[in-house]
């Protein structure tokens, strides 16, 4: 059984402020991702790639269809029907999501932010901090920045902090939304290598990688999403 299995997934947005305009974002998606595999979502801007990642992570509610996740206990949970606290537990232990934006409380230092998800999984703070330190080094975040809030960092540095945070607590299913988008070539290579490492350790990975060279390096299996239909009025 794959770690992620999606069947006939539908998602629409109803915009009440615009006379109930309906935006059909996902129309009958079927896909699966196995352990130790990288799948890449492809398609034009607006095809619903990011929306699909958000639906899997439980951020977007689902209108129809199933998103089944194999949990650590050899059971499956259907995100489409899960309770909020089940989704919270899944996020801690099973699904990791690296968005394009870092969203953190002001004043907390980068090192603590990176270590936090690992501590939530039950790792000792000392061990989590040493892993966090190692990842920040690998991703070339200078030591003098480690105790500063990443809200003051550049876009590329914030993205690397975001990636380090996910890597410090790898979960069986990892979702990446353009993880290399604002990185210089050197850091881009490091991030791709870290993602490939996760795959080799048996992680199931679903991501959006715009650059074909990235997908090539990762030996990703392409999954094509077609463009979204025009809004319909009801």
């Amino acid at each position: 059984m794959p770690i992620l299995q999606i069947k006939n997934l539908h998602k629409k947005f109803t915009l009440h402020a615009q006379n109930g305009a309906v935006l059909n974002v996902l129309n009958g998606i079927n896909l699966q991702v196995k352990a130790g595999e990288i799948a890449a979502l492809c398609g034009p801007s607006g095809a619903g790639k990011s929306s699909l990642l958000k639906a899997i992570y439980g951020t977007y509610r689902i209108d129809d269809g199933d998103i089944k996740i194999k949990t650590t206990k050899q059971k499956t949970i259907n995100i489409a029907k899960a309770e909020p606290r089940q989704i919270m537990n899944l996020r801690r232990d099973v699904i990791g999501y690296v968005s394009q934006f870092l969203r953190v409380i002001p004043r907390i230092g980068a090192l603590d932010i990176v270590a936090e998800p690992a501590i939530m999984q039950g790792m000792s703070p000392d061990q989590a901090h040493s892993i966090a330190l190692d990842l920040l080094d690998q991703l070339r975040i200078p030591q003098k920045l480690h105790n500063l809030s990443p809200l003051t960092f550049s876009g590329g540095e914030q993205q690397r902090v975001n990636i380090a945070r996910a890597m410090a607590a790898p979960r069986p299913l990892m979702l990446f939304d353009e993880p290399t988008a604002s990185l210089d070539p050197q850091n881009r290579q490091t991030v791709l290598e870290l993602i490939a490492q996760l795959r080799d350790q048996g992680t199931a990975i679903l991501g959006i990688f715009h650059d074909p060279a990235d997908r090539n390096f990762l030996q990703a299996r392409d999954i094509h999403l077609s463009a979204v239909k025009e809004p319909e009025h009801v």
Binding site: F13, T14, L15, H16, A17, K54, G58, T59, Y60, R61, P84, I87, M88
Partner: peptide, 21 residues
């Protein structure tokens, strides 16, 4: 009601959409 990110990023009710926007 729902997870915080659900309510803020995918609000369903007209009023929640207005509040978030």
């Amino acid at each position: 009601h729902g997870l915080t990110d659900q309510v803020l990023e995918d609000p369903q009710a007209a009023y929640s959409q207005l509040l978030v926007s």
